[in-house]
């Protein structure tokens, strides 16, 4: 069972309080009708499925109920960082070199 830091509650809590919500930073197109079938498919279905750092969404469903983003290593399942919804993708190379 993973431990997850909710950036809204600022607490690290067990996975049972959270629901996984798929890949992050896939914004719904502003005007879907302007998209080709292929572009719409990409939005609907195509996923990075990264082996390594994966940007993904979680919801603190049994807590504050907020959706937030996380970067997690899918090989070790270790969370690198969690951040609020709407914030841009963090630059993890900077973080790593600072460590």
């Amino acid at each position: 069972m993973l431990l997850i830091h909710c950036p809204y509650c600022d607490e690290t809590l067990p996975e049972l309080e959270f629901a996984y919500a798929g890949e992050a930073h896939i914004a719904r197109p502003v005007d879907p009708s302007a998209l080709s079938d292929e572009e719409w498919r990409d939005f609907l279905f195509i996923r990075t499925n990264a082996r390594g750092t994966h940007f993904e969404r979680w919801r603190h469903i049994h807590g504050c109920a907020r959706f937030f983003n996380a970067a997690r290593d899918t090989v070790t399942d270790r969370f690198l960082v969690t951040y609020k919804a709407g914030e841009s993708r963090p630059d993890l190379t900077v973080k790593e070199s600072a460590e």
Binding site: M1, E15, A19, Y20, E56, R72, T74, V75, D77
Partner: peptide, 13 residues
């Protein structure tokens, strides 16, 4: 499990 992973590990719950 609910999250994507390549770890070949799963949780106890």
């Amino acid at each position: 499990d609910q999250y994507t992973s390549y770890s070949q590990r799963g949780g106890l719950p």
